[in-house]
Amino acid sequence: MTDHLLQVENLRVHFKTYGGEVQAVRGVTFHVDRGETVAVVGESGCGKSVTAQAIMGLIPNPPGRIVDGKITFDGKSITEMSKKELLAVRGSEIGMVFQDPMTALNPTMRVGTQIVEGFVRTHNVSKEEARKKAIEMLRLVGIPDPEKRVDQYPHEFSGGMRQRVVIAIALANTPKLVIADEPTTALDVTIQAQILDLLRELQEKQQLSIVIITHDLGVVAEIAHRAVVMYAGVVVETGSVEDIFASPKHPYTWGLMRSLPRIDGTEKERLVPIVGSPPDLFDPPKGCPFAARCQFAMEICEQQMPSVTDFENGHQAICWLHDSRAPKIDELVAAGRQAG
């Protein structure tokens, strides 16, 4: 318990809008250990990015508000910090990598200056030392010819190179944790492979913990140790990547996996989509949020939120199917429902 670098407990985040209050995150709990990569997976609107923003203390207030819950980072409570205390953590102990490297960088500032901006603020260094640090960071993230590149502007870099710069900024203060929000989504596959490799390599070198937010199950399998599957603001399943891919426990996770074609498959099989679309979070269902799209939904699913069921190795899922009183999945299949 004490070894968790990051602990998120029962986090709830709401946003006020003209249409009412959106309950974007509705009781999220997970943890990240030292040197571990945890992937938060889910579709748009499931609350994965809002969770990341909450960890960084970046929820804009108003309209957003952390209604309930606790975030503990390295023994300190982020949710109870003052703005000034947060500043000391953000950027130095927690680094952030954003999705779109073009908008994350300042187009009017030299790349080198941006990389060491945070470093200079926290360390008392001369100009030459700062420049040397920037060059060292560029070399670390694999940018060729760093002595020349350090004085260039973002528009002189390609998309993949810009993402490397963003990673260099996140790492400049040797943080303990890096939060990467869809870091490869804006990149082409061959460049994505380069960036994922870089993240893996940096993690080993610097003993980093990484939280990677993604919608791509391929990326999860490729880079993460554990995964947190989110749906409609709720964690529906969590566990080691091996367990989740080998024996997923939640119907939503089954659905996600079956709706993906396999590039290494030999036969053409029809895709099995998840019918319908996610619920409206202005007025979330009181039961399981996936019930309306679930083939196995029972009466109780719409009435009451299921509780957490524990499996081996910290593998957890919330689903009524795992309740001792529920019918076995085989029985449901026999009764005419489609197999998961």
């Binding site: 390609s158 391929g218 990326v219 399998a221 490729e222 396999r262």
Partner: peptide
């Protein structure tokens, strides 16, 4: 060959030889 080997496969048990292309388009 490089393009195909770059695609992340949603299966952690598949170990693959990656061809990582250097540089950019």
């Amino acid at each position: 060959q490089a393009l195909l080997s770059s695609i992340p496969i949603p299966d952690p048990t598949v170990a693959r030889e990656r061809i990582i292309l250097q540089g950019d388009l």
